[in-house]
Design a protein around this nucleic acid. Structure first.
Length: 318
DNA sequence: TATATTGTTACACC
DNA sequence: TGGTGTAACAATAT
């Protein structure tokens, strides 16, 4: 379940490994998961097989200039097509959303030798090893030099969308995101006013609203609210100034620690070499319903908010 | 087989 | 009408 720290982990690793590589071939096994064009594709079902062929043709021969992140979206910046110009020959960007279960595995000769091409891609002691490509591998990108990037997605909720580099600022997903939590423009005052605008909303849902602040999902909203000592169901209008400040105060430290631990491997999240993130053992409340609070020993409780499970300590959080 | 899962958006409603 | 809150949606493992 990738949120900002998990996406940042993948982006950092891919940027290091892919920068400068040239795409040699692309195979799309699930045409509905890819799209081409500057317009928003809100309904991926409409994308046809013909678009998948265009997707493949447009990618081939391009060089990866870099990989970056906005909210939970990965942005691969690609060079202009040099050998075969035709149309859309300028720079392109590939936007990728992992949604719940998307995974990138980058396999070069060294990793292939180490793993034999077999990976345990689910953080569960009983999960079987799978060989890549598996039945959940939907896009395979091969690079000059012999390395391969696999895109897996059990649920197929994710997408890969190609847009023209000069059209990036017109992509609606990107336009509508709120501030990045580590951006200087994200201040206590801006955060508080965004919270108050959603006065009737439970504070957890406001924290998860990408227009309020980008990149926070179920895991880290629970963890931030635990440290801020605020219950997830509290209406934002009921928060005191001190509570608003406490929530803001904990956003960056919680995300920073998770990035340092290479993310939380809850369920499907894996790093680009198939290994797991180490943040899970630091969770205070997320996924710990019925277990003892690490701070006071009270049993962690859970409620449903907007269809999501919110975990909290009834003693530590008010 | 029904259920749980989550980020995002469509849409109803005030 | 504009902003907000709720429900729906995608597909699969268990």
């Amino acid at each position: 379940m990738p949120e900002l720290p998990e996406v940042q982990t993948v982006v950092s690793e891919l940027n290091r490994k892919l920068k400068g590589l040239t795409i040699q071939s692309v195979a799309v096994n699930a045409p509905k998961m890819v799209a081409v064009g500057p317009a928003v594709v809100s309904n991926i079902r409409r994308v046809s097989g013909r678009k998948a062929a265009e997707f493949v043709r447009l990618l081939r021969g391009r060089k990866i200039l870099g990989v970056r992140r906005r909210a939970k979206l990965l942005i691969f910046d690609l060079s202009a097509a040099s050998p075969r110009p035709r149309r859309a020959s300028g720079p392109l960007s590939l936007l990728v959303h992992l949604k719940m279960t998307g995974q990138f595995i980058f396999e070069d000769r060294r990793l292939r030798q180490k793993t034999g091409g077999r990976y345990r891609l689910f953080n569960n002691a009983h999960a079987p090893q799978v060989e890549l490509p598996s039945k959940h591998t939907h896009v395979i990108i091969k690079f000059a030099g012999g390395s391969t990037l696999y895109f897996n997605d059990i649920r197929k909720f994710g997408y890969l969308k190609l847009v023209r580099g000069d059209m990036l600022d017109q992509v609606r997903e990107l336009r509508e995101y709120g501030p990045e939590p580590f951006d200087k423009k994200f201040t206590p005052a801006i955060f508080a006013s965004a919270l108050r605008r959603r006065g009737k909303s439970p504070v957890k849902l406001a924290l998860m609203d990408p227009k309020v602040v980008a990149g926070i999902g179920n895991i880290y909203s629970d963890e931030i609210l635990f440290h801020a000592k605020v219950r997830p169901a509290r209406r934002t209008a009921s928060l005191s100034r001190a509570e608003e400040a406490a929530i803001f105060r904990w956003i960056r430290p919680v995300l920073r620690q998770a990035i340092a631990a290479k993310g939380s491997s809850v369920g499907d999240f894996v790093r680009t070499d198939g290994s797991w993130g180490g943040m899970g053992k630091f969770h205070f409340v997320y996924g710990r319903r019925g277990q003892k609070c690490k701070r006071c020993g009270t049993l962690v409780a859970a409620v449903k908010l907007g269809g999501r499970t919110a975990s909290y300590c009834p003693h530590c959080q008010k």
